[in-house]
Design a binder for these strands. Structure first.
Length: 756
DNA sequence: GTAGGGTTAG
């Protein structure tokens, strides 16, 4: 019968749909049936209309389903129920609520078959107030004694984190089943209330209810969500000992717990168990395995797990992208992402966000911003995780317009109150030179975590507003928030900028004694820089000798710079000897030492250092010749034909072209790009080359970046001049945060921090 | 015809 066209069926057949095999109807055939009914004016009985509705709904043909629903004279509650349940099945929670509201407004009586779907939608939307109203409606309409309705309400309250109410509803159920019980137990576990979770588990046992797979899994997940990873692993073991075989859900949860502890051996054991139980190709398990191996820096293992799965699955691909990013393999991440796109995979918000995070966390800021634009073109909606991943890229390039757009978007999407979004906005505005905006964002945050406080303290420190930075720290303590390692780095750098030696020592000494935060290399580097900046070179050197860890190049570099300032040869030699070992290919170190010798007219030693540089294979300092820099800048500018100030630039270029010819340089655009790209990579990443690369990077950024920040730059005279020049020719505002202070360049002038 | 567990992004 099913093979026959609808049009060939007799009226009698269609009026007795029970004999037609409707289950095999395709969407097209369903539309045919619908058309036939409309055309012939067939008498539609309740059974036929229900079947047509469920055919449409299960094929996700919701517009057809609602057209049909609207065509019914008096749609019953069960007709609404069919579509509402289908919406819920496909997680279309907003649609569930809308249709439910419509149904109520039409005065249709409630039935207990659709309430669970509505409760599930409230849970999915975390809409507690709406859920409570639904509960009230269930009571008024007499549906609240239905055990499935009660159970669904328990789940709803647990998901909305209202455990007290959930518990009360549970107490009202005469014979709750295992899963309803387990929902509350998992809820308590998720809130970190281990005692209550255990007590209820005992209560459940007394009632003769044995936990089943779903309840075990819920409990493991609950402990994971409250960060109690060890408890989660114990539950997994308990489950195993009590003879319940884990499934993909149990494995993926326990692996996630293992990933956040330092127990790789346990992870390897579970991996073995996964293989034995035949879950090595389960998409959830594979994602967790990749993530776990990624967190333990087992790069080849994570790749192997991925390849052994043998197919491109979105979750596993996303996990691989973030695992590659975590291990600094940005280019591999980008390759993976482009493969995903080439294969036409349906990239979701996690895919895009992972890739954006991968770029912004690994110095590819412009790429991160471009990806964000592409994401929106692809129609994928950014969420409360995407924005904090994107904002550092805006801050690092001082792309204030993009940052502001992201801010507006967060307000529109109502995610601006998210603690991660707020902290990232505070940080972004500070890095874009807008400290007042930064403070406004910080003040507007309803809740704050240490990251939020660090953002504002670090922001003030960056802007040289030491008083405000220290005040914010006091407020942080008063609010009951504990400072962490980063907080002290921000505070010490604020002290460092202003030469506040006493305060610096006070914070440095108190960090462990009062707050239990151990001093790390960067804290020592700040102190060494602070002490040597004010001329206390011996004190700085004593501190270095006291360090419990090996001092790094930042520490020795801070000392060496001040040795040049104070012409201290003895310590300068000690510091540079260490630096030549730590970063042999940084020309800056050689230059600093030779400067000290030169200041004492020790020309033999100056030559010795220059020869040492040559022996190391370092060419002459690429940042030394002003004419070269000027020419390179202009050749780069000439490459951007769409630049709004092209005419002005061209005029300047004409003049400079003459100068270039005089200097014997080839005025080709490629010259600079090749020069930067083909340089020895190591050399490129250090010293003057880095500064130049950053300066050129400014000019390579696309339109829409009127403001720029260069960070963590020990600024040299040439670099300063280049930036000053760029700001003049382009009318851009440029901020440079060097290790000591904030420089603001505008219209070819430097308005603060200009010490040349 | 109705409820119930998981992974990957900060």
């Amino acid at each position: 019968m099913a093979s026959k066209s609808v049009f060939q069926m007799s009226r009698a057949t269609l009026e007795t749909p029970s004999i037609i095999n409707l289950a095999s109807f395709s969407p097209a055939r369903t539309r045919q049936l619908h058309a036939h009914i409309v055309k012939t004016g067939l008498l539609i009985d309740h059974s036929l209309s229900s079947k047509l509705l469920s055919l449409y709904a299960n094929h996700r043909c919701f517009s057809e389903a609602s057209i049909f629903l609207n065509s019914l004279d008096e749609p019953s509650s069960s007709s609404f129920s069919i579509i509402i349940n289908a919406f819920s099945k496909f997680n279309l929670f907003g649609n569930v609520v809308d249709l439910f509201r419509k149904m109520l407004s039409e005065g249709v009586v409630l039935d207990s078959y659709l309430l669970p779907a509505v409760a599930k939608a409230c849970a999915g939307l975390s809409a507690f107030r709406l859920g409570r109203q639904v509960h009230g409606l269930a009571q008024v309409s007499g549906c609240s004694s239905d055990v499935v309705v009660q159970s669904s309400l328990v789940h709803m309250y647990v998901k909305c984190r209202r455990l007290g109410i959930a518990h009360k509803v549970l107490d009202g159920i005469p014979e709750p089943d295992v899963v309803t019980y387990s929902a509350i137990i998992a809820g308590y576990a998720r809130n970190g209330d281990v005692g209550m979770a255990k007590r209820l588990t005992n209560d459940m046992g007394k009632l003769g209810l044995e936990p089943n797979l779903v309840s075990w899994n819920g409990l493991i997940a609950g402990f994971n969500q409250s960060g109690r990873y060890l408890e989660a692993i114990y539950v997994f073991l308990d489950m195993h000992l009590r003879g319940c075989q884990p499934d993909g859900s149990s494995f993926s949860s326990v692996l996630a717990a293992i990933a956040d502890l330092d127990v790789l051996h346990a992870g390897v054991q579970v991996h073995g168990y996964v293989i034995k139980r035949g879950f090595a190709c389960d998409k959830w398990v594979v994602s967790s395995l990749i993530d776990m191996y990624g967190k333990y820096a087992c790069v080849s293992e994570m790749k192997q797990v991925f390849h052994e799965m043998g197919c491109m699955e979105i979750g596993a691909c996303n996990a691989l992208v973030s695992a590659l990013s975590r291990n600094g393999l940005v280019n591999d991440g980008l390759v993976m992402f482009s493969q995903m796109r080439e294969q036409g995979m349906d990239l979701n918000v996690v895919s895009w966000t992972s890739m954006i995070a991968c770029c912004s966390q690994n110095g590819k800021d412009v790429e991160a911003l471009e990806l964000f634009a592409e994401m929106q073109l692809a129609g994928v909606v950014p969420n409360a995780v995407t924005i904090p991943c994107l904002l550092p890229a805006c801050g690092n390039t001082a792309a204030l317009m993009h940052g502001k757009a992201a801010h507006c978007y967060s307000i529109r999407r109502q995610i601006v109150n998210d603690v991660f979004v707020g902290s990232a906005l505070t940080d972004m505005y500070a890095k874009c030179g807008k400290i007042s905006h930064s403070k406004l964002c910080f003040d507007a945050m309803p809740t704050r975590n240490p990251v939020s406080w660090n953002a504002i303290i670090g922001g003030y420190a960056m802007h040289g507003q030491d008083k405000e930075a220290l005040e914010m720290f006091d407020l942080m303590l008063k609010s009951g928030q504990k400072p962490n390692s980063v907080t002290f780095t921000c505070l010490l750098s604020a002290c460092n900028q202003k030469g506040l030696v006493d305060e610096g020592w006070r914070y440095f000494n108190s960090m462990y004694k009062e707050y239990g935060v151990e001093a790390r290399t960067e804290h020592y580097a700040c102190m060494v820089s602070l002490l040597s900046r004010v001329g206390k070179l011996e004190e700085a050197y004593s501190l270095i000798k006291e360090m419990p860890m090996e001092p790094d190049a930042c520490v020795w570099g801070a000392l060496l710079s001040s040795c040049r300032t104070y012409k201290n040869l003895q310590l300068g030699e000690i510091a540079s000897e260490r630096l030549f070992k730590l970063e042999p290919r940084n020309p800056g170190n050689y230059v600093l030492l030779s400067n000290i010798y030169a200041s004492k007219s020790m020309w033999v030693d100056v030559n010795r250092v220059r020869n040492l540089m040559k022996e190391t294979g370092l060419k002459k300092n690429p940042g030394c010749s002003w004419i070269e820099i000027k020419n390179k800048v202009h050749m780069l500018l000439a490459g951007d034909r769409t630049h709004p100030q092209m005419a002005q630039i061209n005029r300047k270029l004409e003049t400079l072209g003459k100068e270039m010819k005089k200097a014997g340089l080839d005025p080709k655009i490629d010259y600079v790009l090749q020069d930067v790209e083909e340089q020895d990579k190591e050399q490129m990443l250090c010293g003057h080359s880095e500064k130049l690369a950053v300066a050129f990077g400014l000019l390579n950024t696309p339109a829409g970046f009127p403001l720029h920040v260069i960070k963590n730059l020990r600024i040299c005279g040439d670099c300063h001049a280049v930036i000053k020049f760029i700001s003049g020719i382009e009318g851009r505002e440029i901020f440079v945060r060097d290790t000591n202070r904030f420089h603001h360049f505008k219209d070819g002038e430097c308005s603060c921090g200009d010490y040349w």
